[in-house]
């Protein structure tokens, strides 16, 4: 996991679903080793943006570059090859498999030898506090544990950029703090670049150095957490004061 972080450049990203404009002209940069956040109200296009970066569907417009290499429109497994790991907002564990096998499958991305991949998976599980639950079937995990499992599986693929889609949602404050501490320590230790979508402001403020705000599919603001917290457009969106 010490492969360091990659730079992400997103330019003019757009997506329309049958004429419905979900994302329009979104652009931002995440420098190598940084932790950035993507926030905005429900339906703002955050997950759609993530899905375009991760290759779930190709963008209608714009480009995505990882360390200067264009990855726009690649299949998700190729995006994973390129060095992007992701979690799903609605968690997608391999339900019938054990916790260890879930993470092992991620680890097999860069370590074709099964027993070595298993060792790596166990290391990741230890870091995320899931080691004791390794033999449990994933479908029997509690929601917080499933969120942790998502992160573990993504990390096991040894990404250089980690996309986290609401991994704090549904966690208790102490669990949120644990996750924040883990991600911060991971970022400091490995230099992994992290881009997170998050509604839990406590986590966003604690973790990210830079925030991009989306609303109705467009970027309305970006800047430091302090600047965003004072930004009138952002406050309007979040507090519903946009009475024109």
């Amino acid at each position: 996991m010490s492969t360091g972080g990659a730079t992400l450049n997103v330019r003019g990203l757009g997506k329309s679903f049958r004429g419905l404009r979900a994302v329009h002209d979104v652009g931002f940069d995440v420098p190598a080793g940084a932790i950035h956040a993507l926030i905005g109200p429900n339906g703002a296009g955050k997950t759609t943006t993530f899905n375009m970066i991760a290759g779930v569907f190709p963008p209608s417009a714009g480009t995505v570059q990882l360390d200067g290499r264009t990855i726009t429109g690649l299949r998700p497994d190729r995006v994973c090859d390129a060095g992007i790991g992701r979690t799903f907002q609605i968690v997608k564990p391999f339900p019938g498999l054990s916790v260890l096998d879930n993470v092992l499958i991620g680890a097999l991305k860069r370590e074709p030898d099964v027993s070595r991949a298993r060792d790596r998976a166990l290391t990741v599980l230890r870091e995320l506090g899931l080691h004791d639950k390794r033999a449990m079937t994933a479908s029997n995990l509690t929601l917080p544990d499933r969120k942790r499992l998502e992160v573990a599986r993504a990390l096991a693929t040894q990404p250089r950029l980690l996309l986290l889609d609401e991994v704090m949602a549904g966690l208790r404050p102490t669990e949120t703090d644990q996750m924040v501490a883990f991600l911060r320590e991971l970022n400091a230790r490995t230099g992994l670049t992290i881009l997170l979508i998050e509604h839990v402001m406590r986590a966003v403020m604690a973790l990210s150095q830079h925030i991009v705000v989306l609303n109705y599919g467009e970027k309305i603001a970006e800047g430091s957490p302090e600047a965003i917290a004072r930004d009138q457009r952002v406050l309007d969106v979040y507090l519903g004061q946009d009475a024109h």
């Binding site: 497994d77 994973c80 799903f88 564990p93 391999f94 498999l97 499958i105 991305k109 099964v114 599986r153």
Partner: peptide, 20 residues
């Protein structure tokens, strides 16, 4: 490795793809 890939595909193809 192939076998684990099969299990991943069986359990959730989308998550399998995201895992490479």
């Amino acid at each position: 490795r192939l076998g684990y890939h099969w299990l991943a595909i069986r359990e959730d193809p989308e998550a399998a793809q995201a895992s490479g």
